[in-house]
Amino acid sequence: MAHNVLVVGELAGGSPTSTTLELLGGAQGLAAGGSVSVALLGTGASAAAAKAAGASKAFVSDDAGYDAVKAEQWLAALEVAVDQSGADLVLIAQSSAGREIGPRLAARKKTAVAMDCAKIEDAGGLKFTRPAYGGNALATYSIATSPAIATVRAKSFEEATGAGAGEVVQLPAAGASRTNITGMEKAVSAGLQITDATVVVSGGRGLGAPEGFKVVEELAAAIGNDKAAVGASRAAVDLGWYPPSQQVGLTGKVVNPDLYIAVAISGASQHMAGCSGSKTIVAINRDKDANIFGFAKYGIVGDWKAIVPALIEEIKKAK
């Protein structure tokens, strides 16, 4: 069936984010002859419309007031975009902004949102599949009301190709918000981000101390800082060993690299929900019964303190 799809875009440096392009790619497939629109809010939105591949129509507001996302301002604009686009499906990234906008937009449009979807397909109606029970299960939903709304995890769709939006419709400037942002602190690792890396090397509580991450970082560096980034389990982040921006899992980031190396990570379901889409998983763990080995293609049972330095040496040798 044809669908009119609205993608809620996000901008980085005045361009649509890679996740926005992925949502547009998904929208192209799901529209099946219907329309694909995109909403872009913030500095550079009008110019970004031309880069929004696969969208025929862009709803934009270039107002810098939208740059730091205050959901109430975004919601007011997005309600207009939903109405004017005639969307029966709205796709939003499972991002910091999307986690808030999805449910609130659903409430305002008297409909429902399926959060953190990994797969959306039209099989006798739209079906939304997402992890549940900490990743132990998958749940498939349908939405009885319109528009159906979904937040979608990164890398669930291929990026859209084709021309950007030809028709541009202006949305209002940012309005009022009851909440007020009083400060912002960037806390991102320098260099390659875990969501973009082709190799992610992650450390867990089994490292025993924050210093363990130095060795994990050395492993990533040996593979190449242009390819590999360092992640961490929730347990390690909660212990303060590594910053939350590097957390892989249900409450952190979802990564789908070519290679995921889990060092001293037991593989709790909530962690696996963030990395089980990796093409190849390698597990290094002392406990041969650890859950992580159930997901790994290759494993080494042993103490990371001995294994990882040896691995660094072998990787350097192989280059």
């Binding site: 409909t111 429902a112 949102v113 399926a114 079906k127 549940a132 132990n136 299960a137 998958l138 749940a139 498939t140 939903y141 349908s142 939405i143 009885a144 009301t145 089980s276 998983i281 159930g294 997901f295 790994a296 293609k297």
Partner: peptide
């Protein structure tokens, strides 16, 4: 409810 659970299942591991 507006969100209807159609199917709950355990995913296959690798």
């Amino acid at each position: 409810s507006r969100l209807k659970l159609e199917k709950l299942f355990i995913p296959e591991k690798g």
